[in-house]
Write a protein that binds this DNA or RNA. Structure first.
Length: 848
RNA sequence: GCCGAAGUGGCGGAAUUGGCAGACGCGCCAGAUUCAGGUUCUGGUGGUGGAAACGCUGUAGGGGUUCGAGUCCCCUCUUCGGCACCA
């Protein structure tokens, strides 16, 4: 029951005024805690999640679209009877807060929480059905404590480690970036060029899960294929062999990785990465080595240097030179390659530049053996480029004549037998570097002690809280280094003087498990976790909650996270599983990646000046219109072209809904429910009734099938058009209108909940539209009485005929052939064949 | 370069998956309401020929399969995404 004052003012001629009705219903839902959710084993759960925003200041249209999509799903599932978990929170650590601190001298915390307060207000104005009691902010100590806890657990399990290596450094952000955060040699955030810098850093061993993350891709049937493919490509599994080449003169092997052991006989030199441990030792000319290093990681010319050393090809005992080459990556494989210029384009270019021999050992499968090269020198014309395809081996000793695929196996077997190499699997995926030299992030909970080395902070001392006494100058170095109170501490082991780690964590750590935090969050915070992770905790706790809510049934967000966030979350979910906290391996069963919001052919951005401000839109049209247009203009996975006129159209539609209900309001309020039996209804009334059932069916199907809200809304528009054209003139026909209006409002309520709720209440319903069950249709009533039969002659449209829907095929054929126009066109031509497509068309094939 | 997706009216987009191409909306045109503009309402609206009935043509381009193709197959072109010296 809603209070009486909600349906006063009825006497005045009422216009659709979103500015009054929207806040009213938002307040009403909130007061009633309508969207609060608790675990309920008697009901089926549905976890509907949208990617949480970074609190940058205001929401943008991308958020409106993302959250409108998620809200329709959540409201629809709720009406279907699911126990829906629909939470929202804040990805609230990150650089913009720190930049604001430097620029405006406001503390990142203050800046962030002010933004959160404002943006939360904006989201509430959109009428999104969130359970705000589960809200989390990743910058709160209660949240980031668990980042630290997970880190310590990973440290214990050897999944977190520290190493010195070349890392991606962004000057502008003054911090390190993970490989996933370097887009086209530039910083994902600020677009400045990333350079390589040698630093000690913390890494998470995501590569331990490489195989599982890859094989898990095959279970992601609810994800867009392209996203799964991007994940697979990023993990980048390849099969090959590692082979040891003995270096002459020193007691040391060089181990190389190749996916083409079938080309081993064509190796004419060997290349080391400039970062290879032996590079320094073997390089005769150190200045030259530096020059090669300067070209490392750049996709420009091939630059190399002969070390003076030679090594032995284990297959044919040939002595080949050892080079150092800029294009050989230290991070992939072993940091050393055998170079087969005849069959690898990069090696080919390098060989041409430095005058190294090119020896063909694979020929196309079409070539006859007689034409195959003999005696180590290719016959015929020299290669213009590398022959990179597989083929038949030549000049390869006992392996000549084999196909590449067979030779790969046999040569690898041979190497294993002789102890010269082994088959291996390699991944492009590298460990996740999480150290950031910034303030506004989770402090990495370790302590450096001169006696004890690296010591993790004890669990009881968590969280390690960010100090307040920090100055934001923006002049390099981690700001945490400047806080004496933070930096200096006692070693947890020996109690001696020690200092804290001053780097903070990559903010992608925060978002890698926030969906789990939502499941556990309650009015006392993340206390379920706190209790559980204490020693001798009670057995209730997180297990039952996580078992109930996880995994996420529907995840909605931008495709820009196809690799970054989604891969990290899949990794974290597995780590958390292996800690015994959850059972599932995949966090997100279904993923919907919505397209961007485009205006004038470009993504909305301040620099392009094509931004639409959601505040303006809500003030002018209301949130129902804003939501409706976002959902109507394009299917969710596609880019949405913004159109001011299109918004007018959405607003107009809601006004038409409003006026058609107003027009019949008094009669509707008095009308009895629709009695069964429709035989005595007029043609027009039957049409409205049928259209209503068809619309319920269509809207339901479009939501179920890929969430195609645009066509669902189009169907509701059709229904409204039909209703506007119908004038009931007796009580029974009024019942039909009542039925149509009631169902229309229920169908609308996930999309435009405020107007649906308001009109629903105006019609005198005692319940809340948002809590009503989703409408059902009657397949019998939804059936067309008659259909327009299309008559084709030789596949061309030649006429149309209204026939009753149940007509048998033979009768349909008869009717078509009797049609006067058809008779005329056919004339004297013989009928070869007649095809009848049930309920659709007749195609008469004629001709000589 | 490699991998992937997509090309449909003036525009955003539909098309039960091989069966009327253009639903729905925007825009535009005409009419009604209005002092007028806006709003609202009614009708029309792919191109082309025709006064009209109606005809021809049309889903990036070319070929093919089929009674029938926007949809399936082959080739070409264009656009957009992802990866990019991954050995």
């Amino acid at each position: 029951m809603f209070p009486e004052h909600f349906r006063r003012q009825e006497s005045v001629e009422e216009r659709y005024d979103p500015a009054t009705i929207e806040p009213k219903w938002q307040q009403y839902w909130e007061e009633r805690n309508l969207f609060r959710t608790d675990k309920d084993d008697s009901r089926k759960k549905f976890f509907c999640l949208e990617m949480f925003p970074y609190p940058s200041g205001k929401i943008h249209m991308g958020h409106v679209r993302n959250y409108a999509i998620g809200d329709v799903i959540a409201r629809y599932k709720r009406m279907q009877g699911y126990n829906v978990l629909h939470p929202m929170g804040w990805d609230s650590f990150g650089m913009p807060a720190e930049n604001a601190a430097i620029k405006h001298n406001v503390h990142p915390s203050q800046w962030t929480y002010e933004n959160i307060a404002y943006m939360k207000g904006q989201l509430k104005k959109l009428g999104l059905s969130y359970d705000w009691s589960r809200e989390v902010a990743t910058c709160s100590p209660e949240y980031y404590k668990w980042n630290q806890w997970f880190f310590i657990k990973m440290l214990e399990k050897g999944l977190a480690y520290r190493k010195s290596s070349y890392v991606n450094w962004c000057h502008s952000c003054a911090t390190v970036l993970a490989n996933e955060q370097v887009i086209d040699t530039k910083c994902w955030r600020c677009d400045s060029v990333v350079v390589q810098k040698k630093l000690e850093q913390w890494f998470l061993r995501i590569t331990n899960y490489a195989e599982e993350l890859l094989s898990g891709c095959d279970t992601l049937s609810g994800w867009p294929e392209k996203v799964v493919l991007m994940q697979k490509n990023w993990i980048g599994k390849s099969h090959g062999a590692e082979v040891d080449f003995r270096v002459e003169g020193i007691d040391q092997n060089i181990r190389i990785f190749t996916t083409r052991p079938d080309t081993l006989f064509g190796a004419t030199f060997l290349c080391l990465s400039p970062g290879h441990p032996l590079a320094e030792r073997l390089a005769a000319d150190k200045d030259e080595l530096e020059k090669v290093r300067a070209h490392y990681g750049k996709v420009d010319e091939k630059v190399g240097l002969f070390t003076g050393a030679y090594c032995i090809n284990p297959m044919n005992n040939e002595k080949i030179p050892v080079y150092i080459a800029n294009f050989v990556l230290m991070e992939y494989g072993t940091g050393a390659i055998m170079s087969v210029p005849a069959h690898d384009q990069r090696d080919f270019e390098f060989a041409e530049k430095y005058g190294l021999p090119i020896r063909q050992v694979i020929v196309g499968a079409g070539l006859a053996p007689a034409h195959q090269p003999q005696g180590g020198q290719p016959q015929g014309l020299p290669l213009q480029e590398a022959f990179v395809d597989e083929g038949i081996l030549v000049d390869s000793g006992q392996f000549s004549g084999l196909k590449s695929a067979d030779a790969k196996q046999k040569i690898a077997d041979h190497l294993e037998e002789k102890g010269l190499g082994k088959k291996v699997v390699n991944y492009k995926l590298r460990d996740w570097g999480i150290s950031r030299q910034r303030y506004w992030g989770t402090p990495i909970p370790v302590i450096y002690c001169d006696n004890c080395g690296i010591v993790p902070v004890s669990e009881k001392d968590l969280p390690v809280i960010l100090p307040e006494d920090v100055k934001f100058t923006g002049t390099g170095g981690s700001p945490l280094q400047e806080s004496d109170a933070f930096l200096h501490t006692a070693c947890p082991k020996c109690g001696g003087k020690a200092r804290r780690e001053t780097d903070t964590m990559d903010t992608f750590v925060d978002s890698s498990w926030y969906f789990i935090a939502y499941c556990l969050k309650d009015s006392s915070g993340l206390s379920v976790m706190r209790d559980q992770f204490k020693e001798d905790s009670s057995p209730i706790t997180h297990h039952s909650l996580l078992k109930y809510w996880m995994p996420v049934d529907q995840y909605v967000g931008g495709v820009e996270h196809a690799v970054l966030h989604l891969l990290y979350s899949r990794f974290f979910t597995r780590v958390i599983r292996d800690l015994g906290i959850i059972k599932v391996s995949e966090p997100f069963v279904n993923l919907l990646t919505q397209g961007m919001v485009i205006k004038d052919g470009a993504k909305m951005s301040k620099s392009k000046g094509n931004v639409i401000d959601p505040d303006y839109l809500i003030n002018r049209y209301g949130s129902d219109t804003s939501r409706l247009f976002s959902l109507f203009a394009a299917p969710p996975e596609r880019d949405l072209d913004w159109s001011d006129k299109g918004v007018d159209g959405a607003y107009r539609f809601l006004n038409r809904v409003w006026s058609v209900v107003q027009k019949h309001r008094d009669a509707l309020r008095k009308s009895a429910p629709l009695a069964t039996g429709t035989d005595d209804l007029s043609y027009g009334a039957r049409a409205v009734l049928r259209k209503t059932h068809q619309t319920i069916r269509k809207v339901t199907a479009d939501i179920e099938k890929d969430y195609h809200f645009n066509t669902a809304i189009a169907a509701m528009m059709e229904l409204v058009n039909e209703m506007i054209g119908f004038e009931p003139d007796n009580g029974k026909e009024m019942q039909v209108v009542t039925f149509a209006v009631d169902n229309l409002l229920l169908l609308l309520s996930p999309f435009t909940p405020h107007i649906a709720e308001e009109l629903w209440a105006k019609l005198g319903h005692k319940e809340i539209a948002s809590e009503m069950p989703w409408p059902v249709w009657d397949e019998e009533i939804a059936k067309d009485e008659e259909i327009e039969l299309v008559i084709q002659i030789n596949g061309k449209l030649r006429g149309k005929l209204m026939i009753s829907a149940g007509l048998a095929d033979d009768d349909v054929k008869e009717r078509a052939l009797q049609d006067s126009k058809v008779v005329e066109i056919i004339g004297g031509q013989g009928i070869k064949k007649v095809i009848v497509v049930k309920g659709r068309l007749v195609n008469i094939v004629v001709g000589a």
